[in-house]
Design a protein around this nucleic acid. Sequence first.
RNA 1: GCCCCCGUCGUCCAGCGGCCUAGGAUCCCACCCUUUCAAGGUGGUGACGCCGGUUCGAAUCCGGUCGGGGGUACCA
Length: 528
Amino acid sequence: MAEKPLTSPVRVRFCPAPSGWLHVGSVRAALYNWLVARQHAGTFIFRIEDTDATRATEESMRSMMEALEWIGLDWDEGPTFAADGTLDSRGAYGPYRQSERHVLYQAVAQRLEARHDVYRDYRTSEELDAWRASMRTSADGNPPVVKAAQFAHSEDELAAYAQEGRTYSLRLRTPDTGQVIVNDLVRGEITFQWENIADPVIIRSDGSATYPLANATDDVAQGVSLICRGEDLLSVTPRQIVLYDLLVKDGLIDDALAAVNFPAREADWEPPRVFAHLPMVVGMDRKKLSKRHGSVALQEFRKHGFLPETLRNYLALLGWAPKDGRERLNDDELIAEFDLNAVGRSAAAFDVDKLAAFNGERIRGLGQDELAERLLAQLSGADSPDIIPLIKNPPSDDERQVVRKLVPLVQERMQQLDEVLQYAPPFLSDVVTYDPASVAKVLAKEGTGAVLETVTAALAEVSWDAEALEAALRATAQELGMGFGKLAQPVRVAVTGTTVSPPLFDTLELLGREVSRKRLNHALTLAG
RNA sequence: GCCCCCGUCGUCCAGCGGCCUAGGAUCCCACCCUUUCAAGGUGGUGACGCCGGUUCGAAUCCGGUCGGGGGUACCA
């Protein structure tokens, strides 16, 4: 495909509808927009599309803001949190919540109607449903495409309706014939025939604006120059293109903006001409990504201990790869090399295993102090409101000490930070919980008691560091004439409660002489 | 039904008419290392949906077919 030059200045946007949680598919779209903005020293706008009052919630909006903040996609314009937690915003072309732009949409709609670009539709939803149903079953096989010409009301009818105060919606008048070509960076040129495209409702019968109007109006009013979004919006693009032209024609949008005292557009802004429709993100079963596939909400990934930088890397690769095929990329590399033209066209399955593998690598690459901080956030519940915290939030000095010392022991055996929840308990609490299966498998074995007693005695006088402990334990195993593994497992279960732990000598050292001795003694009561 | 999009290992990508007995990553398997679990190392299994056509030559171009997805809302 030929390179399509991006118009300057680059202004891109991410504009979710605030209902539910932020989905990883949406996050990828946000990431791509962010990458494009950063690559061209452009502007990344975060806009809230809450035109549907029945679905949009402020709670969802806040959670989306938090999620975007967490994953590190900083926005140049959009809603923000003030220091006291209330909502604020930054950017010169707001407001950035569509629910606060109602008057603009009204002003635009009035002007469109005055110009006969839109028309009134007095039919109710029920009537339309019935009409569509009849069209679908009719013999001529014509699809139910709403067009102005099909049901033009006579002047008399219109007068009568107005008289009885009947409500109406406003529909955009789209062409009846001819075609539109959508210029798409990932798909090339896509041709639609106007006869197949219905006239969308732009103002509901209750007076509120719908997505087609609000979205197009804001894109033009805020100078968006490139639209990168999910493929589910591809079929809606033709009508959006008409709307852009209508809004810009004779300065309609500028007039409307001025009339409601909204920030004026910049002189060099042009309506968006370039699109990039991203393939869907699906589950491993190729079905639409949903809760059935495990985590889909970004917050879930935080809770389970995925690093934001891993998500950025992995998500960028879901549908795109740099020329040389490298897969481990940092932000600078992503920004430098990302290219919408090179984005794939087929749906991408979200593979948590691969994400986890990437995450493990990044955890191993973290500095120890850095990892300690992240583990503290995991353990204290700072990363998740719904886990049982193992330490205080904020952590006490003692807890910080323990966790810092734990880091080298767990760093290379984690793929997700939340795995620390399994490793840490024996080090954080005086009492160990003995895993019944481990007790049955190892401790209860015939002769284990004797082994444990010998070990306890052998350890009584050694200097308490990993090196000396190793020497002592290996010597003990030799004395007893048993393989080291046979000796190590009972000791491991005795001091940690399970068969899986960090290396034994380091574990003992960190636990300390007293705690270890106590646990060894207690284990004697469980041993065979 | 109609409109639009898509189709290379299980999965994510590479491949842009000969460099492809199709490459990398992840997963899986085996072996090595090893005090458990990991990590690390080595090796391996595994794909061009199908049918035609163009061409000396096709994963790559064209047509068809089958399959998948999105849309078809006074949701976005």
